[in-house]
Design a protein around this nucleic acid. Structure first.
Lengths: 313, 313
DNA sequence: CAGCCTTTGACAAATGTGAGACAATTACTG
DNA sequence: CAGTAATTGTCTCACATTTGTCAAAGGCTG
């Protein structure tokens, strides 16, 4: 863990102001970063994580003065109890920033049908690795792994259902606990009719809140007409659709064209999901943006945020 | 369990006002939290639990002066008996405990597609009215109302999806935040194959945790074989199935018989949901218990809890 | 040289505390 | 049944603590 971030970057990553970070250091020794030769602060990933935890805890009502001195592992527990998640007695590895560790933990939990352990693995992963790594290193691999195990007949549908249900509620929780400013532009997230896989859309929704957008998550399987009416009623600046299964839906091109027609040309349409490639022609035709993964979704949203915000006025 | 919550967090968690919490302390010594060096109150999880119990008891009609001195165990019993008695009876006028108020709030939120408002309406309702009233007075009427509005063409599917998605994550949250004794018997909650309506099952799952059972919620649409394997692997003492739609599923009797055969005769099978009446013959045949509503589910679970607990040993 | 960082001191908003008071309801008494 | 006392939730006030924000002055960086 080499120290590397100047204070400005840390402020961006954690959502705290530089002022506040320095104050917390001065008053409570919340984090004491290394310095350059010329006394400039240089924060490590561990510091960033600690500051994020502190922010979540204070957000939930803790007094910074009381908690600033706590150890990292205590802090994780504290955040859990403040946010009303039960961690229970589980193997803890706060030091580990290794997604694979949490992936293994989670997969074991699925195999043994242990709901609590799965929740706790996800929670710990979410505080120990960043959100990007949480998706790309834990949740997505977990879903693939569960799929493989099921294909191989080593686990049952019930395991897969349990995993889905826990992950879904965990992701919902992430959206709820992320505070976004109410002036932020709004994005509608859903999947088109007959596309029933919803976890991709949920992760997109979480990514969007993380990128500072207000999100309206409408669940899977929604006709173009209804998506458009939701966009209009909520005055959303963008729509994101996740396409996973079926990979070859003959009715989808029609739906997409209808969507573009109904929302008008000012609304950004973003399309992601594994099957997006199979509909490329239509996507180009309706001038929608495709994103390969959640990271590029975040980039697209970041670069469109200011545009959307100004247009709203 | 070190003391850690400042009073405002406790107020949020319990639904009491900070004023009232201090008053109960001054007058009745209901809880006497530790203090910081500067006399600020710091509550522990135990204190929070105790205050919640006190709130539930007073809401059900107990007078605070009488019960404030009781021990925690007595309080649990008291709350249980009080809530049995006062179900349906008019609760004492404590604040705006009118479910219809929250129902209207929630319905407005759905109509205006306001996710946050719906969440906050549900959250307020859950701390202001008891859980029974939350289901029977808010969530179920809300779902019916949304259905009616949709039939009448006054709202779109997107509204219904939004409502479903918010309610689902809210219910999931309720399950997670209810702390259950890890020795409690376990119940598996799901719906059979092709029964895709999941909110009934989710409410059943919440009811079960409220009745002191550990709950494994597996989501909707699960084949009998997989339900049974989940029961066996998790050593569950009971299974609850919610039947709503379709009301006349020709394959259901076969599924139910298979379920009984696969789980053996020691497992309690509970069946609820609006359509349960249409399958009465099979239900009797497999010696399953039917419940009319969530309240009777709670009763069945309460009376079977001790039985299940002893059998587990 | 403009812009960012550091330290220090100061300020104001928010929140918590204890005491007292008030109004509404309930329970008891003659 | 009227009158009285007790109960209980809410509110206000004066004061202390906590905490986020800001400004000034000087140094570092590109």
């Amino acid at each position: 863990m080499e120290p590397k971030y100047p204070i400005r970057v840390v402020a961006n990553k954690t959502g705290l102001s530089t002022h506040l970070i320095r104050m917390w250091e001065r008053r409570y020794h919340a984090v004491e970063p290394c310095r350059t030769d010329t006394k400039r602060r240089l924060y490590s990933d561990v510091d960033v994580r600690r500051l994020s935890l502190l922010r979540r805890a204070t957000q939930a009502g803790a007094n910074i003065g009381q908690i600033a001195g706590l150890g990292d592992d205590q802090l994780v527990e504290l955040v859990a109890s403040y946010e009303q998640i039960s961690v229970g007695a589980v193997p803890r590895a706060v030091g580990a920033t290794d997604p694979e560790f949490f992936l293994r933990l989670a997969l074991d939990a699925v195999k043994t049908l242990d709901q609590r352990a799965l929740e706790s693995a996800l929670l710990q992963a979410s505080v120990s690795v960043g959100r990007t790594l949480l998706f790309e290193g834990v949740i997505q691999p977990l879903l693939s792994a569960v799929g493989e195990e099921w294909n191989a007949g080593r686990i049952k549908v019930s395991h897969e259902h349990m995993a889905t249900s826990v992950i879904r509620s965990f992701l919902g929780h992430l959206i709820e606990t992320t505070v976004v400013d109410t002036n932020a532009p709004l994005i509608v997230v859903t999947t088109p009719t007959s596309h029933v896989h919803e976890l991709g859309a949920l992760m997109a929704a979480v990514t969007a809140t993380g990128a500072g957008w207000q999100t309206m998550y409408l669940g899977p399987n929604l006709p173009a007409e209804d998506i458009a009416s939701a966009v209009r009623q909520s005055k959303a600046a963008a729509v994101a659709l996740s396409l996973i299964y079926p990979p070859d839906d003959p009715r989808l091109p029609g739906e997409l064209r209808a969507l573009r027609r109904l929302v008008g040309n000012d609304t950004l349409i973003i399309i992601g999901g594994e099957s997006r490639g199979n509909y490329r022609k239509t996507i180009e035709e309706i001038r929608a943006v495709t994103v390969e993964n959640l990271r590029s979704l975040a980039e697209v949203l970041a670069s469109n945020r200011s545009v959307a915000a100004t247009e709203a006025k």
